[in-house]
């Protein structure tokens, strides 16, 4: 399951929540954080997640996929001989190629995701996972990221890179085993972008978009009549005024968000699932856990 969407929409929290959900269902699950930012490890206090599989709780694992480490691992798997790999990494030509070829980082990252999803793991110490959840890079780049294997398959017409890039492309576009979830926010532009993203993902990349999560939906705490009763209070003074203003803005946002939800439903093909706004100071593991309970 690849979780994508624009930046700041809650992809990481949702990825971890999906992971918790799958783990609770008894599936052995790993959450992959892409790029060395370790957002997901914020979600698990006292645990540093790096480029190795860390068990967070029963059935739930995490890894932060660093492209340089992925590259090393990949080359070692290809070469089998550590001395040869070390020589390669010392050589200028290789380092040049690795650093300068745009998209190579993305390719080896997807390669690592593929490796994690294999039942017959290439990494000797690796265990088998039933579910692999990928917290994908923000869009703008999201489509580019998922398209990397095909681009490489086109550049290298034959040879090992071609066949491996082809394998990765098939893996991403395998509708039976790989799904994409888009995370959206109930605001005008994020809704537009999510609809465009779904179109690009389906038409250009050819993946299956399984579900769209509309995150951060405010509860409808007040009815229209109640809001009208609050209007005079908002013109008064002191705490009642501040409280009434807060209530009116909640009412306004909850309403405009419902309108955005309706727009999103009209404009996308995949089913839309809403997730509540979490009124908590920081989105830690408890927030993800509460969200995971809403993901039945």
């Amino acid at each position: 399951m690849i979780v994508t969407g624009k930046g700041g929409v809650g992809k990481t929290t949702l990825s971890v929540a999906l992971g918790m959900r799958a783990a609770a269902e008894g599936k052995r699950t790993i959450v992959c954080e892409v790029a060395a930012q370790e957002n997901a490890s914020r979600m698990f206090e006292h645990t540093t997640v790096g480029f190795h599989e860390v068990e967070l709780e029963e059935n739930l694992w995490a890894i932060s996929i660093d492209p340089d480490d992925s590259m090393r691992e990949y080359v070692l798997l290809q070469l089998k001989v550590r001395a040869m790999r070390d020589m390669l990494f010392r050589s200028r030509i290789f380092n040049y190629l690795a650093a300068a070829t745009p998209g190579l980082k993305e390719l080896v990252t997807i390669g690592k995701i593929w490796e994690l999803a294999q039942l017959d793991r290439k990494v000797k110490s690796g265990c088998k996972y039933d579910t692999v959840i990928v917290d994908a890079p923000a869009t703008g780049h999201g489509v580019g990221f998922l398209q990397t294997p095909r681009t490489f398959a086109n550049i290298a017409r034959v040879g090992p890179i071609h066949s491996q890039a082809k394998t990765l492309d098939n893996f991403i576009t395998d509708h039976d085993n790989t799904g994409v979830a888009i995370v959206a926010l109930p605001e005008e532009m994020p809704v537009n972008e999510s609809a465009a993203l779904e179109r690009d993902l389906v038409d250009e990349v050819g993946v299956a978009v399984d579900r769209i999560y509309l995150n951060g939906l405010y509860p409808e705490r007040f009815s229209k009549e109640e809001a009208e009763k609050l209007v005079p209070l908002a013109a008064e003074d002191g705490a009642p005024r501040a409280a009434a203003r807060a209530a009116l803005s909640e009412f306004g946002r909850a309403r405009s968000q419902r309108a955005q939800l309706a727009r999103l439903r009209r404009r996308v093909q995949a089913p839309v699932k809403t997730l509540p706004f979490l009124f908590e100071p920081d989105l830690g593991p408890e927030a993800a856990r509460r969200l995971s309970r809403r993901l039945s």
């Binding site: 070469l79 040869m84 290789f94 017409r157 034959v158 040879g159 090992p160 890179i161 071609h162």
Partner: peptide, 22 residues
């Protein structure tokens, strides 16, 4: 010589075709 070996190793991983194109 080191570079030649590195290149031949790379050809094995990447494929000569791609290196030539690059």
């Amino acid at each position: 010589r080191g570079a030649t070996v590195a290149l031949s190793v790379m050809k094995r991983i990447v494929g000569f075709d791609l290196i030539a194109d690059l």
